[in-house]
């Protein structure tokens, strides 16, 4: 009897060890990857996946800095956050040849400003950020950032802006034609004055609610991510996504290899997996943004391929990534943001 028990325990331990060999620990945004895709990877590679989620780049950074580094293999930071994480020494480098599918990445996303040469990251999804306007309320020209910063009478007091310093300040910079991270004091004062004077026209600050306020009619115009705006339109909001001529914000989420990853080999397998057109197409069909991988277009939903939010008009301006500023400029931005919301 005793021997039998001992054998059982030994078996259990062995089984546990066998499982432990194939593990992958993912730190991801909430609701950003279909469960079926995770299951598919788990099955193909006999790997047990655990996933924790976060709701902002900054929350993820704070958690990694507060001691979570070493417990995750991959994370999915936005563009500027990749650079910040690399500069803070939180990322591992991918050596040449370690990713078999790296060649699938679209040319324009290989040499990106936030990770030149893709040393630490691969593209996950990308999209743009501008604003959408309820065309029942306002019928005029919407392709200008004045809609947000110097709105027409009909939209005043009915505008939602994203509760996110980076996006609001970049859009204001584009409106004024000021370069990002400018250290010129007159330009920074101008930026401060613009935001102070525009605030009276804004009804609310909110990122998670950006879609709902447009659908419910609480807001007649609102800063929003393109995929989110498409969802709002499909839910019945009579809105149009703007491509302002002053410029549009572009963003990209990326899968990064974290430093001290406990399962580095599986992390690389996972990244290769997400570079397969078929797999990343599943993510895009789920999240409604755009992939950064070649040969995906045919696998996307018809609606997504033709959505005005994903297919910019020919005369749309080039997108601008949020730049990573040095401490001096960033602390002025922080001060401007606090003054805006005091």
């Amino acid at each position: 009897m005793k021997l039998w028990k001992l054998c059982a325990v030994a078996l259990l331990v062995a089984a546990g060890a066998a499982n432990a060999e194939g593990r992958l620990s993912v730190y991801h945004w909430f609701e950003y990857i279909p469960q079926e895709l995770l299951d598919k990877f788990a099955e193909e590679h006999d790997v047990e996946i655990t996933m924790d989620t976060y709701d902002s780049n900054e929350a993820m950074l704070a958690s990694l800095k507060a001691g979570a580094l070493g417990s995750y293999d991959v994370a999915v930071p936005g563009d500027y956050m990749v650079q910040i994480m690399a500069e803070s020494g939180l990322l591992d480098s991918i050596a040449e040849g370690e990713l078999a599918n790296l060649g699938n990445v679209e040319e324009q996303w290989m040499d990106v400003p936030f990770d030149p040469g893709r040393q630490h990251s691969i593209p996950y999804q990308w999209g743009s950020t501008s604003f959408s306007v309820n065309t029942d309320v306002y019928g005029g020209d919407i392709n200008t950032t004045s809609i947000i910063f110097d709105p027409p009478e009909e939209l005043r007091g009915k505008i939602n802006v994203l509760d996110s310093q980076g996006e609001v300040i970049l859009l204001a910079n584009l409106h004024l034609g000021i370069p990002q991270c400018s250290t010129d004091r007159d330009q920074l004062r101008q930026l401060d004055e613009l935001l102070q004077s525009a605030k009276q026209h804004w009804a609310s600050f909110g990122s998670d609610i950006a879609k709902d306020v447009l659908v419910s009619g609480d807001a007649a115009a609102g800063m929003i991510y393109n995929g989110f705006s498409a969802k709002a339109r499909m839910e019945g909001a009579p809105i149009k996504y703007a491509y302002p001529r002053e410029g549009i914000i572009v963003w990209m989420d990326n899968v990064v290899l974290l430093k001290d990853a406990p399962n580095r080999a599986n992390a690389l397998k996972f990244m290769d997996f997400l570079l397969e057109p078929e797999n990343i197409a599943a993510v895009t069909n789920f999240a409604r943004y755009s992939p950064g991988v070649m040969g995906v277009t045919d696998m996307l939903d018809e609606e997504l391929r033709t959505a005005p939010e994903s297919v910019p008009p020919a005369d749309a301006p080039a997108g601008t990534f949020i730049a990573v500023c040095d401490e001096e400029t960033q602390s002025v931005y922080d001060a401007i943001w606090t003054r805006l919301k005091k």
Partner: peptide
């Protein structure tokens, strides 16, 4: 304050939250 007040103005809670989760990171 965030959901009903529109988050236009900081309250003590959101001011503190911003220092840990926002860009400021102080």
């Amino acid at each position: 304050p965030d959901l009903l007040g529109g988050a236009k103005n900081f309250m003590i809670g959101s001011l503190i939250e911003e220092q840990f989760k926002g860009n400021a990171g102080n």
